[in-house]
Design a protein around this nucleic acid. Structure first.
Lengths: 206, 206
DNA sequence: GCAATTTAGTGCACTGGATGCCAAAATGAA
DNA sequence: TTCATTTTGGCATCCAGTGCACTAAATTGC
C-alpha cells in the first residue's frame, strides 16, 4: 500500500504480502467483465484471488476502488504538470496539454483502461463513486485556475473552470470508451478546444 | 408515489397514505441538519416520521434520494424550456437562460434548498449519489446540444457541452450554498457567461 | 538457534442500507 | 357484509464495510 511503484526494493521485513493490488484488480476486473459488477460480490473476488474477505479490504478501501486503480498517482502527476507550466502559456492551453499528457497510455494498458472506463460510465454504483474521485481532480484544477485567475480556489471563477474542464475530460473519456475512437488523447484535445472556444457556433455575423 | 404534485384529488380508494414525501423529507432534513447525514439512520428517520423502516423505502428509493427531493420534476421543466427555445437564439444563451429560469425559487424555499445543497456538496455519500442524478441532467442537455450541433447526443460535441454546462451549474450552486452569495440565479448567470466565453484571459494583444 | 519485532492475513461479530415476500390494516364500492 | 384495492408493517435475507483480537510468516539482534 505504501509502495507506489517505486523501483526501490526497500528492505523487506515482516510477513511478505501474499498478493498485490494489481493482481487483485486483474482478477476482479475479469470477474466484473464476465458476470457484471453488481453481480460480483467481494467474497467472490476474495476467493478468486485466494485471500480472505477481510484482506480484500486491506488492499482496497472499497469495491469501487478496485475499478479506479492507481488514480491517486495520476492525479499527482497532473498536479505536477500544472505547477510546472510556464506562466506565459494561456490557462486553457496548459489545462488541455496537461490532461492530454497525463492520459497517454501504452498500447498494452488500453484494453484494460477501456474496460475500466466502460464500467465507470455505465454501472450506477460506479458512476456514483466516481464523483468522489472527480472531486479530488477538481480540487487540483481549481487550485491551478485560482493561481491564474486570482482569488480562492473556492471562488466561482476557478470552480467553474475546474468543473467545466472535468466535464470536457469526462466527455472525451466516455466517447472514447463507448465508441471505438482510435485515440483517447485526440478526443481530449478536441473536447478541450471546444471548451476553450466557448462552443462558439458558426454565426453569420457579429 | 404516482401523484406528482397534480392538483387532481383522484378518487381515493384503499388505505390512505399515512404521510407524504414532503413530510418525510422535512423530518429527515431536520435530523440531517442537527446530527449529520451519516449519523442519522433510516430507522431514526422512520421513527421520527412515525412509519416503519420498510415504509420509508416506499416513499424514497434510497436515503440519499430524500435530500434530492423533487429533482425529477425540475428536470422535466428544464427539458421543456430547452425544447421551447427559438432556433434563432444561440445555444449557450438558451442554456444559460433555461438553467437560470429553472432555478428561481421563492424566498420560502431558499433556506431548505441551501441545506440540501450544502449536504449534497459536502457529505461524500451524497456527493457520490449526486452523480447519478447529474447523469440524467446531462442527458437532457446533451439531447438539446445535439439538436443544435448536429450528430447524436452521445457524440463528443454534445457530450462536452452537456458536461461542461453541468460543471458551470454545479460551480454556481456550490458557491451559492457555501458562501452566502445573495442570488443563486446571478451566480448561475456568471458561471454560464464564463463558460460561453471560453474563460478567455485578458490578453495584451492577439 | 531463539526470542523479539514487524508486517500481513484471518475470523468473527456487528452496523446499516436495501430488497423480496407475505400478512395485516384501512378504506370505497357492491 | 363482503370484496377489491391500496398502504403499511414485520421478517428474513443479502451485501458492503469496520473494529478487534488473534494467528502466520518473515527479518533482526543476541
Amino acid at each position: 500500500m505504501t509502495n507506489t511503484g517505486g523501483a526501490v526494493p526497500e528492505v523487506t521485513r515482516g510477513r511478505p504480502a501474499s498478493t498485490t493490488r494489481q493482481d487483485v484488480a486483474r482478477v476482479a476486473l475479469d470477474l466484473f467483465a464476465r458476470q457484471g459488477y453488481d453481480e460480483t460480490t467481494v467474497d467472490e473476488i476474495a476467493v478468486a484471488v485466494g485471500i480472505s474477505r477481510r484482506t480484500f479490504f486491506r488492499y482496497y478501501e472499497s469495491k469501487p476502488d478496485v475499478v479506479w486503480g492507481e488514480f491517486d498517482a495520476e492525479l499527482g502527476r497532473l498536479r505536477d504538470r500544472l505547477a510546472e507550466a510556464p506562466d506565459g502559456e494561456p490557462m486553457m492551453d496548459v489545462l488541455r496539454r496537461s490532461v492530454m499528457a497525463t492520459n497517454r497510455f501504452g498500447a498494452g494498458e488500453l484494453d484494460e483502461l477501456r474496460i475500466r472506463m466502460v464500467l465507470i460510465g455505465s454501472v450506477p454504483t460506479l458512476v456514483a463513486h466516481s464523483a468522489v474521485r472527480y472531486e479530488e481532480w477538481c480540487e487540483v484544477v481549481a487550485a491551478f485556475a485560482a493561481s491564474r485567475l486570482g482569488g480562492a480556489p473556492d471562488d466561482l471563477g476557478p470552480q467553474t473552470v475546474a468543473r467545466a474542464a472535468l466535464g470536457a475530460a469526462m466527455a472525451a473519456f466516455a466517447c472514447w470508451a463507448r465508441h471505438g475512437s482510435d485515440d483517447l488523447v485526440e478526443d481530449v484535445d478536441r473536447a478541450f478546444r471546444l471548451l476553450a472556444t466557448g462552443f462558439a457556433e458558426k454565426r453569420p455575423a457579429t
